[in-house]
Nucleic acid binder design. Structure first.
Lengths: 261, 261
DNA sequence: CAAATTAGTGAAGGGTGTTAACCGTAAACG
DNA sequence: CGTTTACGGTTAACACCCTTCACTAATTTG
């Protein structure tokens, strides 16, 4: 027996899946309440003993990777939700609202951010189950930028304008962007995406790590400045005043809800 | 007695100073050979036992802060040395060469970089002895940028053009830049510096953390692109071809010496 | 029903930071 | 000068940490 239930999973498999879910849940609770992420703490929080966790993860690092992936997935969902509060014909608005949400999330959950985006070890190990489930924040931002390109048709460099190393990279991108729909002559779009990600990651990481005047961080002006300077490359220069208003609204409302925590 | 020697330090104080020096030396050796930085490891490397270190640092975190500060100091010296290989009248060259050296150092010593620039805890604790010895990489880059401004007199926003939060921050800067010599109406320079630091930190941190296509990192094109896009704000737009050649030379020579390690 | 896989246990080894009690020796004081 | 203090080190111990091993009870499988 054990052939199937309604979802094709045997009873044990379902239980195992539930345990995985509980592991990430317990881990995120720990992280959220400022505690260290440790095998023992997670295990005891689940009413288990530490060695038992080795039935599910091969090492401590694997646990970290697992929850990092799960955090990325759920955080990305909130970014997407923010974008979806705007109509689909406002690609620029959707993009800036999503990146603003990214910044707010990072500043509110610095440990989670560090785990996912500043963990030098995690990287290559992003290979548990449904890695191909197109979650991962990267996908979202590339998709939103692609939407913008479809609407503004901003200029992208041609392939032979690109440096050789970049050309290689955009022709065979590692970070799986949805480039299948992009015609080959417009693949410079991927380069624009890399530039944008660099800008976004840079300012957010700097703010989260705190290597900047706290007053500047709190105001969000540096973040806005970076976006403001980058937006023209996406053909959003004219729209910037409206987009900036959108972002400021979200920054302020985030600051408000931060005071009553 | 014990009043003085030639340097006003008593024998014990000199010995203590030497021990501090040995602590940072041992720590950096450990870091350099890929080991973890731990109190025990440092102690045994010095022929001591772990609790003895508590006569010098109050906690593990304090040890980390100590070596972070020392690393920053010595790394900054190498950046300055790179700049000093160019004549003083080439302020632009000196700046781009220094930041290129910064990037190379970061990629070559990722652990050290993470310790100094991605340690969320270190920050406020940067207060051991000669913190006021104007080392800290921040000082160097502000000085080099100030040189550039003296030569190109690039445009900086006036105080009332700045957002309120930024105005406060440049009028009373936390990161102690050499702003005493800057007349009040040109204090927008500090804002330009903050922007530049954001750009530099962003791309370098992204490269070090590895959240980018390795081929792009290896080529250095993203780093060059960031500098290229920022340079015009410093009045270095016309000089960019020459400056880019300078940087490429340093990037390539660094890549060469990396293959035979 | 018997066999095999699974998910858990407890004990143990080796690592970490940290505190406490103790002890020579070098400096400071009368 | 001798006495006292303070400094710089020790060992022992505690409380964590990751990890492995041997073992057991239950569940699935043939």
């Amino acid at each position: 027996m054990s052939v199937a239930q309604d979802d094709g999973l045997t009873r044990r498999e379902r239980q195992r899946e539930a345990t995985f879910e509980e592991i990430t849940r317990a881990s995120r609770e720990l992280l959220g309440q400022g505690a260290e992420l440790s095998l023992r703490a997670v295990a005891t929080k689940m009413g288990m003993t530490a060695p038992a966790l080795y039935r599910y993860v091969g090492s401590y690092q694997e646990l970290v990777d697992l929850v990092a992936y799960e955090i990325d997935k759920s955080a990305t969902a909130t970014f997407a939700a923010a974008a979806d509060r705007l109509p689909t014909d406002d690609a620029g608005g959707r993009l800036v609202v999503a990146v603003t949400e990214f910044r707010t999330w990072a500043l509110t959950n610095p440990r989670e951010f560090a785990l996912v985006f500043a963990n030098p070890i995690a990287e290559a190990a992003c290979v548990r189950r449904e890695m191909n489930t197109l979650a991962c924040s990267g996908h979202l931002f590339t998709d939103l930028m692609l939407e913008v390109w479809h609407q503004t048709h901003f200029a992208v460099p041609t392939l032979d304008e690109l440096p050789a190393a970049i050309r290689e990279s955009v022709l065979d991108p590692l970070i799986p962007a949805k480039v299948e729909k992009v015609p080959r002559e417009h693949l410079g779009l991927v380069w624009a995406y890399m530039q944008g990600w660099t800008q976004l990651y840079g300012v957010v990481a700097l703010e989260v790590m705190g290597h900047m005047d706290p007053r500047v961080i709190e105001s969000g002006e540096m973040f806005l400045d970076v976006i403001r300077n980058y937006a023209p490359r996406l053909g959003l220069g004219d729209e910037m005043p409206r987009l900036e208003a959108l972002m400021r609204a979200r920054i302020d409302s985030a600051a408000e809800s931060a005071v009553n925590d």
